[in-house]
Design a binder for these strands. Structure first.
Length: 875
RNA sequence: GCCCGAGUGGCGGAAUGGUAGACGCAGCGGAUUCAAAAUCCGCCGCCGCAAGGCAUGUCGGUUCGAGUCCGACCUCGGGUACCA
């Protein structure tokens, strides 16, 4: 419907009816235009390349606002870099294996494969209208047969290179459902479906030797300049390189176990050791299980979940085994050996030294079981009695760099006491242990090898066979891919691969005899550890293509949630090294991600009322208006909560795009919060974004219509203020985009649009500025930018226009206003020529009336002039 | 428990150690309109008539000057190796 929108005075006299901003129509039109031009198909050419990647989505069923935010940010980078002349790789795929598909099959029937591909189709259809500059020709899902084939080929090469091995590891076992549970399926130590306490159970599983690269993964963090410092810190702490000592405690009364090996980073507290604790799975503990009391505690200890969190938070339990060990520094002391539930056989030696005076966990344990608490050291100057008294109620754990007073020598009773830092004492203790032969200094890592075996169906099959003659044998590459059987059911718990009638049967590539397939599948983190490499040549018949990988690697900008700061990103860093080693990536790709940005979540208010029994009842945003329901009931508003279906505080991107258009959704997602922080979706904010975009469209229409005015032959009115504003905006928006400050870029665009609205400039000068507006907005709102570009006389498409550059001359200011502080408080200001010397500024300031009043005739004690910034008078 | 973050008006936020609150939302006032919507213009941290004072989670410190740096704490969020 046509209507006039032009302001009085700028009304196009002869102009036809203007069209209102109509994103539904124009957005799909521009998307078709880009498609037809093949604008976003990545090409290897003479331009410098730029690889932008957002963490690919799990196909859960529908896209959500978090996806919109994530992909919009990547899209801004892709379009901005494209305008700057880079050849862009900006692909999209699907992290398609995983538990939700199996859960859906269990709950609603159907097959995980069908569920997954249907979800992918839906989500792709939902993403398309966002107008993302994605090369869809490279799309793949990790559950595609082809991806499975290449991943299995990688596995075999890594196996061949010695990067993969098998060992026993514990899992959460649900004794009722007879199945392995994921950590998230263990709630308060009980299985999520059965409600029964889970047990720890040992299984032989496949491991990647990520610890081979522990040193390198840690040291290389220093070079990752484009990564957030917090992520590098988290990874460094996770890898956790520590220097300590492996100590041997000789047993007194266990002839079959002459010694127990213990690793500690605090050998300086050895004199404070009052017990050893061992895992219930330690061989020594297992040998004692004929004792019913020990068996009971061991069984109880095995009932704790396997997660570190569960382990650390669980009530500490233990039992004295009756076994005694001799203290290495004092043969007259015998220490008891306890079984404890917080020690896992998987980590280290399965035994730890208890120094309750200097460790919170050991202290808790010692208090609970009445074990002695002996201080190795105390506050500086403390006597032994004082130090012991101080640790009775709580452990003393100062930083290792802090000097303390050792009250029991760390090299023996009364030997090497006195003031030391923990660091120095640890060094001395290690030296002493080595000299005396009761231990040796070792560097160890917190990082453990990466267990990839999953007792689940919907994952990439591990391509190995079990042969009675040859043992464990890799599948022949010619037989890849090993694909999942499709005729499976999920009506009984457990892994359908295990109970499939024929799938396991295979021929041994070694001896040609009968063999059984491995029924474990790979951790889905394997899939996501190399997908970025696969995007460089998604259709290659090998995992990667050397020329493509060489051109496109590395990822120049990776964008995703901080929840992946450790596992996904560390595994990817490891995988890249493994792929370099096996010849699938060039050496330069061993750090595959040059820059990382972690974006915040999208949140929304929760609207809550209470039922008769005081339980919360949640209401959808559209049911609430003005803080009330339709029937007038007031709702309680809980701000900034993560969007979740159960809390009903969700906004569907499809609804938003239908109602406002993609550009509004994109604009609001970027405008309201800095990208690394959470953003709260608000209806009013979305409406404001929509209004602003409509206003920009109107401005473009008005300026575009200007030549049709009757005075078209009169000279154009220029407006130096507007030109200056435009160049300042170019400068500021460019710097904001470079710094990932999308919200600031948008604030600058508001300012520029306001300047255009105020300006009296006419005709071409105005249109020139509107073309700059179009270019600067294009990365954020690409469809509107095309409209504005076309309306203001731009040639071709805005998407193909090179990024504008600011005219330095237009940015210079001739005078500056300096605030005047007196004793640090703002008391006035002074406007001086920008080039005025500090000495002249001082004179001008001292002449200032407000300054004279404060100084009251006295000379100032100090006068600080920060050129161009501020003046501070100290009276 | 442990590791890592974040906290600024009624709200989202801005601020190379240099005027705290850019820009936007909400609110208030005005213009336009028969009326409304839409649009346009103006005001808008708190207390105070004003002078002025108080304000960046809390408490201390460094500095001519601290939202920004240092120390301790509080609250919320992420991770914690089988959720992705």
């Amino acid at each position: 419907m046509a209507r006039s929108v032009a302001k009085p005075g700028r009304q196009p006299a002869s102009g036809g009816p203007s069209m209102p901003y109509d994103p539904a129509n124009s957005e799909s039109r521009w998307q078709q235009a880009w498609d037809q031009a093949g604008t976003f198909v990545a090409r290897r050419d003479e331009r410098p390349k730029y690889y932008v990647l957002e963490m690919f989505p799990y196909p859960s069923g529908r896209i959500h606002m978090g996806h919109v935010r994530n992909y919009t940010m990547g899209d801004v980078v892709a379009r901005y870099k494209r305008a700057q002349g880079f050849s862009i790789l900006h692909p999209m795929g699907w992290d398609a294996f995983g538990m939700p598909a199996e859960n859906a099959a269990m709950e609603n029937g159907g097959h995980p494969r069908d569920w997954t591909y249907a979800n992918i189709a839906t989500m792709k259809q939902q993403m398309k209208p966002l107008g993302l500059a994605i090369d869809w020709t490279r799309e793949f899902a990790t559950c595609d047969d082809d991806y499975v084939a290449q991943q299995q080929a990688l596995f075999l090469d890594m196996l061949d290179a010695g990067l993969i091995y098998r060992k026993a590891a514990v899992v959460n076992w649900d004794p009722v459902d007879m199945t392995v549970l994921a950590n998230e399926q263990v709630i308060d130590g009980k299985g999520w479906r059965s409600g029964e306490p889970v047990e720890r159970r040992e299984l032989t599983q496949w491991f990647f030797r990520i610890t081979d690269y522990a040193d390198e993964l840690l040291d290389a963090l220093d070079g990752l300049d484009g990564w957030p410092e917090k992520v590098r810190l988290m990874q460094a702490n996770w890898i956790g390189r520590s220097r300590g000592v492996q100590l041997r405690f000789d047993t007194v009364n266990a002839p079959d176990f002459p010694g127990i090996e213990v690793y500690t980073t605090r050998p300086d507290t050895l004199m404070g050791a009052s017990f050893l604790s061992i895992s219930a799975d330690h061989p020594l503990a297992k040998s004692l299980e004929s004792d019913p009391a020990i068996a009971a505690v061991a069984a109880e200890a095995r009932r704790t979940g396997t997660s570190e969190e569960a382990l650390e938070k669980a009530e500490k339990i233990g039992i004295d085994t009756g076994i005694r060990v001799r203290h290495p520094l004092d043969p007259s002391r015998e220490l008891p050996v306890w079984i404890a539930n917080f020690v896992l056989m998987d980590y280290g030696t399965g035994a730890v030294m208890g120094s309750p005076a200097h460790d919170q966990r050991d202290h808790d344990f010692a208090v609970k079981y009445g074990l002695p608490i002996l201080a190795a050291f105390g506050e500086r100057g403390a006597t032994r009695a004082q130090a012991d008294a101080a640790v009775a109620a709580q452990p003393f754990t100062p930083p290792k760099s802090e000097p303390v007073t050792y009250v029991r020598g760390f090299a023996g009773e009364g030997d090497q006491t006195g003031d030391q830092t923990g660091e120095a004492a640890v060094d001395a203790a290690i030296a002493h242990a080595e000299a005396q032969g009761y231990g040796e200094g070792v560097t160890r890592f917190r990082l453990r090898d990466w267990g990839i075996s999953r007792q689940r169906y919907w994952g990439c099959p591990i391509p190995v066979l079990h042969c009675d003659t040859c043992g464990v044998v890799p599948e022949a590459k010619a037989n890849l891919p090993v694909l999942l059987p499709l005729d499976v059911s999920f009506d009984v718990p457990g892994n359908p691969l295990d109970r499939h009638p024929t799938w396991r049967d295979a021929t041994c590539p070694g001896c040609g005899g009968a063999a059984r397939r491995e029924t474990d599948t790979m951790d889905t983190f394997v899939d996501s550890s190399w997908y970025f490499a696969r995007f460089t040549s998604p259709h290659a018949t090998t995992p990667t293509d050397a020329a493509d990988a060489d051109y496109w690697m590395n990822v120049d900008q990776y964008i995703g949630g901080v929840e992946h700061a450790i596992l996904h990103l560390l595994y990817s860093r490891f995988f890249a090294r493994a792929m370099v080693r096996t010849g699938h990536l060039p050496a330069k790709a061993s750090e595959p991600i040059a820059a990382l940005f972690t974006q915040g979540m999208v949140t929304h208010e929760i609207y809550q009322t209470r039922d008769d029994r005081g339980r919360p009842v949640y209401h959808l945003p559209e049911e609430v208006s003005g803080g009330k329901l339709a029937d007038g009931t007031a709702v309680e508003v809980i701000p900034s909560a993560k969007m979740s279906k159960s809390k009903k505080n969700v906004v569907d991107p499809v609804d938003i795009v239908t109602r406002f258009g993609a550009d509004t959704a994109r604009w609001f997602m970027l405008s309201d919060s800095p990208p690394e922080r959470d953003v709260e979706w608000t209806a009013s904010g979305a409406e404001a974004a929509s209004k602003f975009l409509a206003r920009v469209y109107r401005l473009a229409e008005e300026t575009g219509a200007a030549p049709d005015a009757p005075d078209r032959n009169a000279p154009d009115r220029d407006d130096p203020d507007l030109t200056r504003a435009a160049h300042r905006a170019i400068d500021e928006v460019t710097r904001a985009l470079d710094g990932f400050a999308f919200n600031k870029a948008i604030a600058k665009l508001y300012e520029l649009a306001n300047a255009v609205g105020r300006s009296q400039a006419s005709g071409e000068p105005r249109r020139a500025v509107m073309r700059i507006v179009a270019q600067l907005m294009a990365p954020m709102v690409p469809h509107l930018a095309e409209d504005v570009w076309a309306l203001s006389g731009g040639q071709g498409m805005a998407v193909d226009a090179p990024w504008p550059t600011a005219d330095a001359a237009a940015l210079v200011q001739d005078s500056v206003t300096l605030p005047i502080q007196i004793n640090g408080k703002r008391r006035g200001e002074i406007t001086v020529p920008a080039a005025m010397s500090p000495a002249d500024v001082e004179q001008a300031v001292l002449a200032d009336e407000a300054v004279q009043r404060f100084l009251n005739g006295q000379p100032p004690r100090k006068l600080i002039v920060v050129p161009g910034r501020i003046v501070n008078v100290v009276a």
